[in-house]
Design a protein around this nucleic acid. Structure first.
Length: 712
DNA sequence: GAGCACTGC
């Protein structure tokens, strides 16, 4: 063992962590001597649990094409393992580099910065990152690159064997994001083509996961060896309720107040499922704690809060109300965002009612929706872990121990089993995967879900009847959008309004632009009324976008505030629009506008026609009874009350089908039956059409068109 | 007449 170790250990310090000032004091990547800061950080790095496993990891990586690393929080795996791969000699400056994927952008950027510091190099030169809108890396010098999993997938579309990489570290695999799952499937195709000694050179893969799934990953990667790295966290004592709770919000409030009164000092984190629930619980907590001896400061936390509101959760807990009195306490009431994306140090108590909102997909009616569902045991463990980051903590689970073991699933259903596949299928087709049925997914989606995706892509013209990708399909795959929106962009020049359509599409790809805080709902509605175009929510969005774009930069913040418009969303829609324009230029798609006067005016008819040409699969028709039915699927739907379209038109196209108390269609635009049969006759082919009132109207439209043609 | 968990390109 020791012999082999010496050969591969290229370490820059001895085993005691004492860096000897010798020739190894020169940074091999830059040729410059190491700074004092490097040695200071090195001392801490050596103490990380993962450091003990450095030689073992390097040996395993050199011997195997894939390995699995199971490491708990606090092990240091994310920052150290990519560096160990560099020490193993896997990267060659200017030729190949090591990639490390992250599910979230902030993680990719902040870890890159940390590792650049540890390696004593400039961020963007030897160590870099790539996320959407931002590439801080250099093909000539970068040897280690952090990137989002979605970004690696994009890169693969133009580099199908991932030739620029010699090793790929997939981090946070246990989260099973859609992109991570697709990349893993893709690696199953790539790895046999990039074995040791092959013409393309070897590609190494390190799959990193926080426990639980390690065996499944090992088996999937053809019995890859496992390296287990312990974490470094504090013990968390778990409590269960004796009986099931009927109302979990009420139980969460009660438990929190109980902790506040009876437990030693330390902050509390409460998990609930959504904004409304959280605001309600916060109000009750404030109300009921007012008369208590110790102060309780309550912060809500969910993603649609502004960054400054989110930052408040990091403020210190308050002191005693009166000198010598009991110290105050902080409680954060949060969605799942605090389970993975946001870490709050100093949490000692966690209250876990055991629910979260999860996306579900119903392929039969082609609808994705959010459902409050029980969490998995893995999630429950992750939540309780949030109590032990700085010292020993306690977690109060508001369900019985029996329920934890018998009712909860082991792990959360991976996203790939809960999503529409249309975008994934388009991407895989672009990557040259022809046989989707036999594509080696870790968890294969339901065949019906894949069928739905193929059907949609065929109707959109992205795939021909043999399932081969068309020229249009190639262009669609280049656009980072859902296939329908991509199609919409590609047809829009035919209607002379691609400039407007890009603005609309950009506005649709960001979170809600029109804000409506409960306490000022009326003012918000009045503000939105200025932008209203009665035939269309899409055109209402366009008006808001156009006005925003015409305002000088320094007035925009105030304008957003005055008009109840989300500044964050507006800024990101401008970014998205610019990215889309860049891709359109590359694809040679014309940018034309119906705004002849240049004052932000537009042609409603042309734009609504373009929308109809792109979104013909999402149409609803008003029955004589007054109810709307979706065309073909015959689902009862209601126009969402937030829509500006309130005169109950006969035909509408819609962006989104939201299942809540009722089946709502949101973001709708008035269309008409003549356009439908003119623009999408292949979809409205009456031979394969369920009998319904809409069918009669379509028949009439077809004969009208036939008559006018014969008259001509 | 309303309730969009969270990411990502």
């Amino acid at each position: 063992m020791s012999d082999r170790r010496r050969k591969i250990d290229l370490g820059s310090s001895d085993d005691n962590g004492n860096s000897k000032r010798n020739k190894q004091d020169v940074n091999p990547w830059t040729g410059a001597p190491y700074s004092q800061r490097y040695y200071n950080i090195l001392e801490k790095r050596i103490k990380l649990p993962v450091y003990q496993f450095k030689d073992e990891l390097i040996a395993k990586v050199l011997e195997n094409q894939s390995i699995v690393v199971e490491g708990e929080t606090g092990s240091g795996k994310t920052t150290q393992i990519p560096q160990f791969l560099l020490e193993a000699g896997l990267a060659t400056q200017g030729e190949t580099c090591v990639a490390c994927t992250q599910p979230r952008r902030v993680a990719a950027t902040s870890i890159a910065q940390r590792v650049a510091d540890e390696m004593d190099v400039q961020l963007g030169s030897e160590v870099g990152y790539t996320i959407r809108f931002e590439d801080v890396s250099d093909p000539h010098t970068t040897v280690l690159k952090f990137l989002t999993d979605g970004m690696l997938l994009r890169e693969a579309m133009h580099d199908p064997l991932l030739m620029r990489y010699s090793a790929i570290v997939l981090d946070e695999c246990h989260e099973r994001t859609l992109a991570t799952d697709v990349i893993m499937g893709l690696l199953m195709e790539i790895l046999p083509k990039r074995k040791k000694g092959s013409e393309h050179g070897e590609l190494k893969v390190v799959v990193m996961s926080a426990t639980l799934d390690a065996e499944k990953f090992q088996e999937y990667f053809h019995n890859a060896p496992l390296l287990k790295v312990p974490g470094r966290t504090f013990p968390v004592e778990i409590f269960y309720t004796a009986k099931p709770e009927r109302n979990y919000v009420e139980a969460a409030v009660r438990t929190t107040l109980h902790i506040h009164q009876c437990e030693a000092p330390g902050d509390i984190l409460v998990f609930l499922t959504g904004e409304q629930e959280i605001e309600q619980a916060c109000e009750e907590l404030r109300e009921k704690s007012r008369s208590m001896d110790a102060e309780l400061v309550v912060y809500p936390l969910y993603s649609s809060l502004s960054p400054e509101q989110q930052r408040k959760i990091f403020s210190e807990a308050p002191g005693p109300r009166t000198p010598g009195g009991p110290p105050g306490r902080k409680v954060v009431v949060s969605t799942n965002i605090a389970e993975t994306s946001l870490t709050i140090d100093g949490i000692v108590y966690v209250v876990d009612p055991g629910f979260s909102k999860q996306k579900v997909y119903n392929p039969r009616i082609r609808v994705e929706s959010l459902l409050v569902s029980p969490i998995s045991r893995a999630s429950a463990k992750q939540r309780s872990g949030r109590a032990g980051r700085t010292r020993p903590g306690k977690c109060f689970r508001l369900y019985t121990e029996k329920s934890f073991h018998d009712d909860l699933q082991e792990t959360t259903y991976p996203e790939i089993l809960r999503s529409k596949m249309s975008n994934v299928v388009l991407t895989l087709k672009k990557l040259g995967i022809d046989d989707l049925v036999h594509f080696d997914f870790l968890d294969p989606p339901a065949p019906e879900t894949l069928m739905r995706a193929l059907e949609l892509l065929n109707y959109l013209g992205a795939l021909d009847d043999e399932g081969e990708m068309t020229e249009l399909g190639y262009q669609m795959s280049e656009l980072p959008l859902d296939p329908q929106l991509a199609k919409l962009i590609l047809v829009s020049p035919d209607y002379g309004c691609s400039s407007e359509i890009v603005s609309i599409v950009a506005s649709l790809s960001v979170p809600q632009i029109f804000l409506r805080p409960r306490e000022s709902a009326k003012q918000a509605d009045e503000a939105k009324a200025q932008f209203t175009h009665h035939e269309s929510d899409h055109l209402t969005l366009l008006r808001a976008y156009n006005e925003y774009a015409m305002i000088p930069d320094k007035e925009r913040k105030q304008w957003c505030w005055d008009n109840f418009i989300s500044e964050r969303s507006m800024i990101s829609s401008v970014n998205v629009r610019n990215q889309l324009l860049g891709i359109m230029k590359r694809l040679d798609i014309q940018v034309v506008s119906s705004d002849i006067k240049g004052d932000g005016s537009f042609s409603s008819v042309d734009i609504r026609k373009a929308l109809t040409a792109g979104m013909f699969m999402q149409v609803a028709y008003r029955q004589r009874s007054g109810e709307y039915l979706t065309v073909k699927d015959n689902q009862h739907v209601y126009i969402h009350p937030s829509s500006v379209v309130n005169n109950r038109p006969e035909w509408v196209i819609f962006e989104e089908f939201a299942l809540t108390t009722k089946n709502h269609i949101r973001t709708v635009t008035v269309t008409n039956v003549d356009w439908l049969v003119e623009l999408a006759p292949h979809y409205f082919d009456l031979e394969n059409f369920p009998k319904c009132e809409a069918k009669g109207e379509l028949e009439k439209a077809y004969s009208r068109i036939a008559q006018s043609r014969s008259r001509r």
